[in-house]
């Protein structure tokens, strides 16, 4: 991940902080349409009618272009909606935007995350459809869809295929063959084994015997003999059942404290 560290604090751009914005709740079907619409077309018209002495009426009318955006088998959606206006009470709602750099950006100057304050929500509008035929049909369809059970009964016309039991699975056979090809573990020269061991212990301090056997490819009995000479076996819990070099053999760069943060090491269960 080449992205900049996520936990650095960023300045919140407050140039728009004082701006009042509207929070509009729209039905999902409108939101779907709007999502599909491209950014430059008009998706609808907002009409504010102010009658003196009465509350202002706000209505939303979707554009033809948006209504035309539909796939097959999709219902007509109502065109006009009423917007109910309410004020925000008991809470302070703000809107901020978060710009994340595109992960595939190959710009020379790497984009950084940016935060903008987009304004304060001054009014809440709730988009309500007029209960006309179109809307009712839409609802009817959605109810029908919802009432269809997710699982359905299917009749089978033939026997479902079952698998015969196998005495020896394929990967077992493969594994056995591989082992055979490797042959028996041969006792290597002791110096060579020691070399391998020291190399391994350079990388890590603690090893399980099985891992060492895998690395050095020596029989465990033989390996143990050697290990007893140069290594200590840990019986206690941080690094239990693990081998480490005897102090006189080890020279780690910063042999401060062999990380005493204890964890349960149980190694008898895996592989």
């Amino acid at each position: 991940m080449s992205a900049p560290p996520p936990h650095t604090d960023r300045e919140l751009d407050l140039s728009n902080a004082g701006r009042g914005v509207w929070l509009v709740k729209v039905p999902k079907y409108i939101a779907n349409k709007w999502e599909k619409a491209s950014g430059d077309i008009e998706v609808g018209k907002l009409k504010i009618t102010k009658n003196p002495g009465a509350k202002a009426e706000v209505s939303l009318r979707l554009s033809e272009a948006v209504l035309a955006l539909k796939e097959r088998e999709e219902e007509e959606i109502p065109k006009a909606h009423r917007l109910d206006v309410t004020t925000v009470t008991r809470q302070m709602l703000g809107v901020f935007s978060h710009v994340t750099p595109a992960s595939t950006s190959d710009a020379i100057v790497p984009e950084t995350e940016k935060l903008y304050m987009e304004g304060r929500i001054v009014q809440k509008l709730e988009c309500r459809p007029y209960a006309d035929n179109c809307y009712m049909k839409l609802k009817l369809e959605s109810i029908k869809r919802a009432s269809v059970p997710q699982r359905q009964v299917q009749q089978l016309d033939r026997v479902v295929q079952n698998f015969k039991p196998v005495s020896d699975h394929k990967h077992n056979i493969e594994y056995a063959e591989k082992k055979k090809a490797e042959g028996k573990k041969m006792r290597d020269d002791k110096d060579a084994v020691l070399e391998m061991l020291f190399a391994a212990f350079e990388k890590h301090q603690y090893y399980n015997i099985r891992d060492l056997a895998k690395i050095t490819r020596q029989p465990i009995v033989y390996l143990k003999e050697i290990l007893n000479e140069v290594c200590n076996y840990n019986l206690k819990n941080p690094h239990r059942n693990m081998w480490e070099l005897k102090p006189e053999y080890r020279h780690y760069k910063d042999d401060q404290k062999p990380a005493a943060t204890a964890t349960k090491v149980d190694d008898s269960d895996d592989d």
């Binding site: 004082g18 929070l23 998706v43 978060h98």
Partner: peptide, 30 residues
């Protein structure tokens, strides 16, 4: 009558989120 046309600008990188504060906190963005 005032009429406004609505657009839905597409900017996939920019995401708008709501921050909600309790009124008792007396937060004033401005």
């Amino acid at each position: 009558v005032q009429e406004y046309s609505i657009r839905v600008p597409k900017n996939s990188k920019k995401k708008h989120n709501v921050m909600r504060f309790n009124a008792t906190l007396n937060v004033d963005f401005s």
